[in-house]
Amino acid sequence: MTDKQLLYAYNGEMSNPVLNKILSTIQTKLSALGEKRNVVKNVNTILIECCQNLIYHAKDKDTLKEDFFPSVSIYKDAGGYRISTRNVVAGEDAQKLEAYLAKLNAFSPEELKNFYKERLTDGKISAKGGGGLGLLNMIRASKDGKLVYRFDPVNEQYLMFTLSFLM
C-alpha cells in the first residue's frame, strides 16, 4: 500500500495555543498508530518549527482573510510522514525565500550541519523572536535532504507559498 493517509490538517489563524492543540492531537494520533516516543517527538519538534514559521511570517491583518489563512497538514505514506504548510508571502519576500530554499536544497548533509552551526552561533534573533533556523531544521530532519516548494499568485501583491518535506 502506498496510499497517502491524511492524519491531520489545520487551516486558520496560527498561534501558540493552536500549536499546543496540534501537538497534543498529533501525539495522540501517532501513539495510536504505535509509533515510538522518539518518532512522535521528532515529528512534534518539526511541527513546532513549521507552525512558528507560520506565526512569524503571518502578514498584516488585512491579508488574514479566509483565503489567506495559513495551513498545516500531515500525511502518512509508505515513505514516512509528509508535512506540508501554506502561507501567504509578499512578492519581494518570495524571491529571497526561493533563493534561500534553492541554496539549502543544494547543500550536502555535512554542509547543512555546518551552515546550521554557523547560523546558531551568529547571535542574530529577529524582532519577533525567531532565530532564522526553522527551514534549516526542517531540511535537516527530512529523509531526502530536500524541501519541496512552490509559489502561486493570489493577487498582485501576494503569493501562496507551499512547503513540504518527508520525514
Binding site: K41, N44, T45, E49, I125, G130, G131, L136, N137
Partner: peptide
Amino acid sequence: FDYFNTSSAKYILE
C-alpha cells in the same frame, strides 16, 4: 529539555 525551538537554541548558546 523535552522540546526546544530553534530560537531558544540561540539563547541556550548565549
